[in-house]
Design a protein around this nucleic acid. Structure first.
Lengths: 187, 187
DNA sequence: TCGGAACCGGAGTTCAGGTTCCGAATAAGG
DNA sequence: CCTTATTCGGAACCTGAACTCCGGTTCCGA
């Protein structure tokens, strides 16, 4: 999908880059609701050019989302470098969510119900989930997360927070509640 | 929208009911992805009939969603009758979510980002939010919920759980985590 | 039983947005 | 420079789904 770097005429490579750029910005802004014509215009290119580089809208979206998952993987790797397991966990969680906050396409990919799941596609190309597992494992090990907390639970929580990304930053409140618990002192 | 009960010819009333029924079932199943033709067929009626009773798809959806919010209000009222504030709270939460589990249209209404928000529309017609406020207030009063817990937080949590309704019942795990907290014993 | 107002049905229209096509434009080797 | 394979651009096309239209049918009061 992201395709041949070599043997592309100069203008072709330039245009491909412009398309990728414009698409990234627009998808991030409005998810998959943006239309091909708009992306082409924003990239200063005709729709035909879009279709020379990407088979269809889905392929373009896939390329953009793939990139995001890679960035997310890098972010996770960085978080994992923190000594303190809890710091690593929090860094991962907030990094993940803050990225999602600025990227509707990413949220779309994570929250969407369509088959095949974007998440699963990405999982095959990056080792994001392995890193998440390690970070979660460390936090559990250190007793900072309940003993039965699993990597899958991280995803549940991330999804929950993303569902609350609607303009205001309600999602931070949501995360606060989850991290601190909602119970009162009375038991 | 739900319109004149009186002065409708017998067949008209019958058809309207059939449409409402079919639409409720289909929307619950697949959200707003169902198409008008399908609803008409399922109701044993022509599309023309759909449009005589409802101005457009949105109006039909609104009628169905309105109904759901009313049912939800009844449910909340029942929950509020429980003596124990915590029981009331849990009854509300699980009742709300279990209903949502079986109704994609309701989830669509609560999670959707479109303006105007379905939630807000419903809020004007029912006193659901007032009841939620009372139940939350009681639980806080009794010390079962953290002192700063607000009715808005209930919505955040409900949304979070709904975002995890994807076939499996991950959402129950999500709620468990939120209710019990995710921290380990190590403080 | 009859007249006509109200209603029905579903083929056809409209519209939006993704995708294709092909003559024009351009890069890059000789 | 010239040649030609490659790429560009964007009008035209296609598809799917919401919605309209109107001849035929049904209800219901007199």
């Amino acid at each position: 999908m992201t395709a041949p770097e070599r043997s592309l005429r100069a203008d072709a490579r330039r245009n491909r880059e412009a398309v990728l750029d414009a698409a990234a910005r627009l998808f991030a802004q409005r998810g998959d609701a943006v239309q091909m014509d708009e992306i082409a215009e924003r990239a200063g290119v005709g729709v035909g050019t879009l279709y020379r580089h990407f088979a269809d809208k889905r392929a373009l979206l896939a390329a953009i989302i793939g990139r995001r998952f890679e960035a997310m993987t890098a972010l996770a790797r960085t978080a994992d470098e923190a000594r303190d397991p809890w710091v690593a966990f929090e860094t991962l969680l907030y990094g993940y969510l803050e990225s999602a906050e600025g990227d509707a396409a990413f949220r779309f990919a994570v929250l969407g119900a369509e088959e095949p799941r974007w998440q699963d596609i990405a999982a095959e190309k990056t080792d994001l989930s392995a890193i998440i597992e390690r970070i979660v494992g460390r936090a559990v090990e250190a007793g900072r997360l309940r003993a039965d907390f699993r990597a899958g639970d991280f995803v549940l929580i991330a999804r929950g927070a993303m569902a609350n990304m609607t303009g205001a930053d309600d999602w931070r409140r949501h995360v606060t509640l989850v991290l601190q618990g909602i119970r009162g002192p009375e038991r």
